[in-house]
Design a protein around this nucleic acid. Sequence first.
DNA 1: AGCCGGTGCGTCATCGTTCACGCACAGGAA
DNA 2: TTCCTGTGCGTGAACGATGACGCACCGGCT
Lengths: 352, 352
Amino acid sequence: MTIAEIAKLAGVSIGTVDRVLHNRGRVAPKTVETIMAIIDEYGYQPNAFARNLRLSKTYTIGVILPHLHSEYGYWRLIYNGVLKAVKELAQLAVSIELVEYDRLDPKTFLAAVTKVLDNKVDAILLAPLLPDETRLMMERHPQISYAFIDSPLPCRNQVITVAQNPFRGGFLAGKLMNLHLGSRAGTLVVINTHTAAFNAAERARGFIEYYADKPNYTVLQLDIEASRTAEEALEQAYHDHSDLSGIFVVNNAVARFAAHIALLGRRNHTIVIGYDLVEQNRAAMLEGKVDCLISQRPEFQGYTATYQLYRKGILNQKPDEDILIPIDIILAENIRDDNSYGLEWNGRDVPR
Amino acid sequence: MTIAEIAKLAGVSIGTVDRVLHNRGRVAPKTVETIMAIIDEYGYQPNAFARNLRLSKTYTIGVILPHLHSEYGYWRLIYNGVLKAVKELAQLAVSIELVEYDRLDPKTFLAAVTKVLDNKVDAILLAPLLPDETRLMMERHPQISYAFIDSPLPCRNQVITVAQNPFRGGFLAGKLMNLHLGSRAGTLVVINTHTAAFNAAERARGFIEYYADKPNYTVLQLDIEASRTAEEALEQAYHDHSDLSGIFVVNNAVARFAAHIALLGRRNHTIVIGYDLVEQNRAAMLEGKVDCLISQRPEFQGYTATYQLYRKGILNQKPDEDILIPIDIILAENIRDDNSYGLEWNGRDVPR
DNA sequence: AGCCGGTGCGTCATCGTTCACGCACAGGAA
DNA sequence: TTCCTGTGCGTGAACGATGACGCACCGGCT
């Protein structure tokens, strides 16, 4: 069904049909009715190729992320996924503009928003780590599309959200801790170095929930404040609880604690579980200092969110609004197999 | 960079540039050289919108899969992913044609190939379960694109392969068995009901490899032949090995064995690990009859393979030839979170 | 000389959508 | 009546790639 076919059926010109389709007025009510009836009956899907050829608009996505080098490169992984999508979509008129900020300093976030908007982006892809500032931005600029990544943000607007369920991630971490402990019981420590972060708090809550009905275990929450070093806090915990048998770090900082546990000679008696397959954590796991990691597939998140924005912006498709990233369990045995999208077939074990 | 711009730079008409770009001859060698030099210097990416608008070719993908109702609906999951991709790509001129066959009867496979080719498909997406017949097909019809799904097939041609590494899947199953057993040792049974299948054999090999250096465990391979029933074989195994403590089913038939284990009253003493999140296995896990499943994300495989073919066929992009699907660990605690793509955010645990 | 085939190139219509422009006719004001 | 404004339409020119068509020229043949 093309505009020309509709026009012929309605006995009008394509210009008139176009005006009806775009509500540009200057059409007799009766004619509008006729044309709408035809569209209702036969359906009409504009030809995406013709449309974009004519419009020849480039769709620019502003990407606002914490500094890519921060948090052990976690945000760079997300950005890599965005880049991969943009590489594929470049010939379909999609481009990006990255602006980094400091997640501890809201002013830098607002500056990033301003900078991105100055470049007239059509959409913004960001991690809503600063809920108030994010809401402010959306209120002030309702005309552009938004995609959230890494964490959800409760809000009324229609937005694309690509994130993992952090509560269930923490709950699963509890189960994995349990599996690794075998029959051992004891004290378990949940370490949070980002106490203000929604994801981190939810993961801790999930872990504690898992042990709520298991009286043999004591779960201790350890929020590391800036005032004392993480290493001191850890040593204190070992001192206070001689039966400390497991540590769960709710974010990507696990390698730092794993290193110190090894240093203290406690590795053999402590199960270590953490989050995210950043380079440092990957190395720690390969060195045997970490038992289990949970991954949220950051590259996949970036890739997917970018594609959703493209579908919405260029193809005029209704995007999937909430995309739940599966909880990915990484053990030393399958760490090689996680390559994020997972591209690159590892043929070594497969006779070809 | 458009053809017109190249033409202006070269001092020729767009027709000439087009002939050079498509090697259609009838151009003076000197002119070819000039134009190629310009392209080398400035680069040229044909406008995908203009190209496809003009060609208005519909790209049809033939999908050849075992009967969707067979194997507990495993193939239907793959097909669902294909359907999701096609729904998104329909407005970009992609369509599919499904033909099912019986994987135990090569004749039905060849009939499916013929049927699909009669409809002049541009590409074929299939699981190369019948290596010889698949190679025959590719030799006879080298002009169309192929995508393999579920399993790899060693071959010289450039093809897209979307699959998991089955050996490492089996190896990881060994590790998971180990974790679930805690300190218990004993006899472990590997059950294979599809002895001719490459994936199944590799998974068994991986599992056995994991226990190769663990003398406390005996691993027993149980290939179920058609001559006796699976249930009898299982009972025999329990009879022969009083210390039987774990069962690994290398394919999606695990629910069947899990049910019989429960019936025999052995559930409490047997760890059950299997493959694939088909409906029956999901139910068995929720009923507590299965401890762990490994998923190969069949929907994601179908979705990804379809997109790769589209990129190759419509966008003329060089596809990623080998796409490795991560090994997905499903426990009762995260079964809710696996929704394949995973679409549909489950907001229950997240205050919005 | 006249004809033919091949070569090198330009021209033009086409795909479907979008939008500026302009025509014709109505009704109202001068 | 004349002029002007607004309404309802049609027209046509883009967007860039593609490929059929045809023109001019050259060489070789009868």
